[in-house]
Design a protein around this nucleic acid. Structure first.
Lengths: 191, 191, 191, 191
DNA sequence: AATGAATGAGGATTCATTCAT
DNA sequence: GATGAATGAATCCTCATTCAT
């Protein structure tokens, strides 16, 4: 029974199914058929809505980044001072959702895809810039001059810690956050 | 003109060709045929020597890690004091070879593969442990107690900076090294 | 021009083509491509409907056994007394269809496959049991006690005569039936 | 260390290995490599000695038939009267060796091969004629006129019983022999 | 005599994608 | 809107066979 207004629902179902499949496979080697079946529709319909496999992947990536961004916003809104805001941004990277196997898999494949897919690279840049911008903004309260370079270091450290935690089996979210915060403090204490 | 003793030559050619193909494709989506053709032999022979696609990939990974390890050893041997040794270990991660597109691609795919392939994960662990061990050893000269945690942070930062540099187009090797060294100094300065 | 409801048509076409190919090759060394081409479709579609080569073979076997069973039923229905029923069951094994080269080939390969394929063995057992059951039922009218053992002998003799006839070039159907009937009579006359 | 006079040894090793491989596979789908490896030599040497895969198979068949024939001869020599000789011929078909999985597999595949390979068919005919000749010879002592037809029936029954026993899991050799002997007696008792 | 080397040909299977309905 | 039908192209892998040594 085809209904009108199904498109957004179908698209959302496909995005979710894609993330789940990528998580289950650990790679982008997932078939459109498998995704479609998990989403409860035919693969032909998936093509109809997204145009092709790549588009589906990118939509999934956008979804993950959007969810992450929402989490960051939420934590930022709850923070009352620069220090709290810095901690909010950092800890957001290590929230539970980020360590879902499907999200880990998506992120790692995101890096791979960024080498060859310009849209993926664009999304990655947006993520990095937003993180950098958030960090720099609040770092200025402490050390205006070195804010950008510290922000870069923190951004890189977040990625590095994330990958190690993600590939290292169950880790404490808190632990990852503490490592980055210690780096932050070390930099801020200098001079 | 078949000759005896070809095996090591063929294997080496295949490993090199594999790395080149992965680099050209940006992903592990490379065919055994393409690899074999680049290596100047039939795909059947590639299977004969390696047994399967996975084996070829892992051999390529081992090759990259081995070359990296050799570089680290070489730089360590030239260093005359703990500080120089720390700098040797850190800068080795950002030597020119590491930023060859094919090596970048191999590393990124290495992470992806580690999620599902236990041998890949094992190799990754070895790399991480060796790095950690090298760093810890020389850090003890400066701050015996906090050496392990600082080593962990440096290792993670190296990975993070590497990924950002690798996906960010041409970067200064020196710059990447400086970022990590600054982190090192910040930690060491903390009383 | 894809239409709905094609599945049963395609499956039937594939089964028929499989039997024909096995007959032409004389062995199970037939390719899915050849079968599919003969059935007028792509090999991909054959896999889509059957899942794999083995499934196609077994479907063909089931088809042959079903046709044979139908012939037996038909002859049994036309028989009016136990003796006529025994003759019906025996002669059915040697009806014209059974000596089609493709059917002969299928049967011989059936035996081979039964060594390693449990589903094939299952089907073979069903055939043997049905034959045994049919024979025993009507033999009881003549010699209740020895019915099972005579039935076993007749079943075995049918198989043996069939193979010899099948591999011996053109034979008289009647002749094969007569040999088995003579055995039947010899047993019934005893004592 | 190539030695002279190795040829017969190599050939015998290959024949034995072939039978073993066929038994292990249950079909003729065995590779020359596997056979050669089991025989302790390279596949190239196997080709050198036999010329091709088919030749190797046929050599294996000849070996089995030769062994069987020797067993028959041996039992015939020990028999002192026509009846004993008939029993010798019949029981020989069901000696232990015949129920080795590898021999069973060879026989079943022999039938399959006989459809398309004239040499295989020729060997099969020789086996059948020899059996028929042996049986007829001694049956003449009891019923000169019907000897040929009885011999044909016994030959067919032997094959049928053998297949059923072979595919039916562990059976009593004696049982199989008894079934055929009962048929013999039933025929001889007539009139 | 014996083999490692090497390959061409082929085969099962998968999959993204298209299309008529 | 939605899907079953259908396929071409590709991919991994196998194997009999040949050949230089």
């Amino acid at each position: 029974m085809p209904k009108i207004g199904m498109e957004p629902i179908r698209r959302a179902a496909l995005v979710e199914a894609t993330i789940a499949e990528i998580g289950a496979a650990g790679s982008l080697d997932v078939t459109v058929s498998a995704i479609s079946k998990r989403a409860g529709m035919s693969s032909a319909l998936a093509h109809h809505y997204f145009g092709g496999k790549d588009q589906i992947f990118l939509a999934a990536m956008r979804h993950i980044l959007k969810a992450f961004e929402a989490e960051v916003r939420s934590r930022l809104n709850a923070a009352r001072c620069p220090r709290a805001r810095l901690e909010a941004v950092i800890s957001a990277s290590f929230w539970d959702e980020s360590f879902q196997p499907s999200v880990i898999s998506a992120w790692l494949n995101f890096y791979v895809l960024s080498q060859t897919n310009s849209e993926a690279l664009r999304l990655l840049r947006i993520y990095q810039k937003r993180l950098h911008s958030n960090l720099t903004h609040d770092l200025r309260s402490f050390c205006s001059a070195r804010a950008p370079e510290i922000a870069y270091g923190i951004g890189a450290l977040i990625d590095g810690v994330y990958i190690r935690a993600a590939l290292g089996g169950p880790r404490e979210t808190v632990e990852a956050t503490q490592i980055v915060l210690r780096y932050l403090d070390a930099e801020l204490e200098r001079k």
